[in-house]
Design a protein around this nucleic acid. Sequence first.
DNA 1: GCAAAAGTGTTAGATATACACCCATGT
DNA 2: ACATGGGTGTATATCTAACACTTTTGC
Lengths: 236, 236
Amino acid sequence: MTDESTSSYIVAQPILVAVDNVIFGFDAETERLKVLLFKRKIEPFAGQWSLVGSFVQPNESAVVAASRILTEFTGLESVFLEQLHCYSGVDRDPEDRVISIAYYSLIQLQKYREELVEKHQAAWFEINNVPDLVIDHRQMVSDALIKLQDNARRRPIGFNLLPPKFTLPQLFKLYQEIYQQEIDDRNFRKKILATGLLEKLDTKDKTTSKKGAFHYQFNKAKYQQYETEGYDILFH
Amino acid sequence: MTDESTSSYIVAQPILVAVDNVIFGFDAETERLKVLLFKRKIEPFAGQWSLVGSFVQPNESAVVAASRILTEFTGLESVFLEQLHCYSGVDRDPEDRVISIAYYSLIQLQKYREELVEKHQAAWFEINNVPDLVIDHRQMVSDALIKLQDNARRRPIGFNLLPPKFTLPQLFKLYQEIYQQEIDDRNFRKKILATGLLEKLDTKDKTTSKKGAFHYQFNKAKYQQYETEGYDILFH
DNA sequence: GCAAAAGTGTTAGATATACACCCATGT
DNA sequence: ACATGGGTGTATATCTAACACTTTTGC
């Protein structure tokens, strides 16, 4: 990187740039959509709940920074990660001028490494029961959920929240959590099966019922096709 | 703002933050969707075509900066302006580390103040005939068009590109330009009239035909309703 | 045998698509 | 009277929404 003293951008004042990451996970046990939050360690607002974040370092882009903190806090790599919005209000942070580029990621909650979460004093909160958060982080969570809803309708991103083998009741409950509303289960099955995304396996998950629910996995070809092409499904 | 020397964010390195604005206008005469570009004045890349941009000042948020440059270049205020994406690649700018928060705006091309555009050596380019641009600005234009397409389908934003009184053939051609494809005109009229957004006036525009096309204006109540609620129309 | 969750189809209404001709006017 | 762009309607196919009972199995 160029030495700043040689920059010809003489009129520009540099600003602190942070990333914050809205990390979503689907808790298969409680069947709730959750967000990973942690207790902020530095002033201002030390001790309050906050999104997982960091300043952007000189040698990394924002997406790399967001990915770095995701790994630091969960141990996971190469998961779904997408830019949400850049928040740049002048008085966001009382300490200094800081803009924040918010990201959101979708992870398999059962795969995060618990010791990392403990080490960082982090915790999972239900999406509709998020505590007061630092600065504008609550806005970020709510914007992220809207974006997730919008996206889940057009692309097969919801699957990033599930393990490779999952059941239709699980998938159904996940979508109900994402949209925060009741969905007709028969129509849901029809629509989701009509995409051709799902492959039925002949094993069953019997942890939630005596009858057991069949396992499914994606058809990877269809999955990639829809990742680029998209579809459009409204669930009611 | 806090004096930087007192900041407790001791590990953070500030970064230059710019905004760039993809300014769309619909040229009623040629019936083409256009983008406002200008000849960059500062190094690096002085003399090359570029989006309209500026560094974010200490006392302004990104959206205020984007709005400021929009007014500087066109004389227009309070037009449609929305954040697109934040571009933060480490080597975007060879001179220094600069991240850019891109915005896009929709203006009535016939209302911009020509002397301002001339003063800044700016020019309107057809959307499918954009020259080579500085850094990643071409990517920004192409991302902005995709976002515009996505948005125009869900909210009545296309109207920001038209004067208060317009004709259905004009609106139709605008949507064809936005989607860069032929649309069935009978179905288009049906769908757009079915929204209840349009009020037919009893005057006609005769500049493009002998028969003349009726003027329309929005129903403001419906307009505001849809601004928040949205709809969903695919034009084919 | 019963409780608890999994799984399954149909119908009516709404929406989307495809498509071709007449109208009004200025010259 | 004719050339030019403006304006209109219908039939078919597809998709969506609403809705309730049977199946399986562990206890």
